[in-house]
Amino acid sequence: MAEYILKTPLTDADVQKLRIGDSVRLSGTIYTARDAAHKRMVEGLDKGQPLPFDIKGSLVYYVGPSPTKPGNVIGSAGPTTAYRMDPYAPRLMEIGMKGMIAKGKRNDAVKEAMARHKVVYLGATGGAAALIAKCIKKCDIIAYEDLGPEAVRRLEVEDMPLVVVTDCHGGDLYIEGRKQYEVR
């Protein structure tokens, strides 16, 4: 299990070297979106409208932060469960998204699309929301402000601690990791 320091945007080469269980410290710009924002982005794409950010090489973080306390950059900001975004994720991979940050298992359609488009799925520790917020140095709402915690935000992150949970070679840590420790 290797350790990598990654900077955004990600390239195919960045993604291809990552294997499940590797730990990653991520720095750069990432975008937040969850259920309602994904629905709106994909419906917009279907109507020929552009996305609110440059998707090429981008990473999307599935998060709905708590309200920001005065003086802080952002509220607590841990990952939400990913499977609810499964219906939308392949569409974003087709047009250049390179990574997803969240928690929990993905379905086969997502994993196939990840292999096809060279995309990595990075796990952030669910519930470690105050710790993750510390890595977020800047936060701007860039679209869908009416969605509140679900609005699309641009985040500048530094050394965000992540683990490769699904790689573009078909590896899935939720399956492989468990196999290693399951006592039957």
């Binding site: 929990g104 796990g123 840590l173 468990r178 290693q180």
Partner: peptide, 8 residues
């Protein structure tokens, strides 16, 4: 075998 965060 699920482990913390399901990583095993």
């Amino acid at each position: 075998g699920i482990g913390p965060m399901g990583y095993g």
